[in-house]
């Protein structure tokens, strides 16, 4: 059974992180409500696994990366969708994949040579540290 403190901590982290991205309370609500089972099932605090994918100032989705597994929740009409899990046979999101593939580009490897040996979670974390074009697709 997941400890009550972990659940409370996760909800608090979500509220904090989403609020930092200027998400409205309604939209944060939609994320929690649409993904309550997922959040309740998390054994560890998700603070370090949450990323926001933007196109310019427009939030595209929230990305949750755990080692080589990742999930995303799309942001549309000021609401977050149910979390979608990456599954090469069922689900695939071009924009999410495109961002993940930034890590394979030569220019990124020149800046962060160690990125090739990282898992997806570390890659996303590394991409977040690079000053990517804020008018285009980038990670926060």
């Amino acid at each position: 059974m997941i400890a009550r403190e972990t659940i409370n901590k996760n909800i608090k982290e979500i509220l904090k992180h989403f609020a930092e991205q200027n998400c409205t309370l309604d939209s944060i609500h939609s994320f929690i409500l649409n993904n309550l089972d997922f959040i309740l099932g998390l054994e560890n605090c998700i603070r370090d696994n949450l990323y926001f994918i933007y196109n310019g100032d427009n939030l595209y989705c929230v990305l949750l990366a755990f080692e080589d597994t990742y999930y995303w929740s799309l942001y549309e009409n000021e609401k977050f969708s149910c979390i979608i899990s990456e599954d090469k046979n069922l689900n695939y999101d071009y924009i999410v994949e495109m961002i993940l593939h930034f890590a394979d580009a030569e220019k990124i490897k020149r800046i962060s040579p160690q990125i090739t040996s990282m898992n997806i979670e570390q890659k996303i974390h590394e991409l977040k540290k690079i000053r990517l074009n804020y008018d285009g697709y980038h990670v926060k």
Binding site: K107, I130, N133, G136
Partner: peptide, 11 residues
């Protein structure tokens, strides 16, 4: 890429 006047293009 660390210069304030530069942003890298990922795409």
């Amino acid at each position: 890429s660390n210069q304030s006047f530069i942003e890298l293009e990922g795409n």
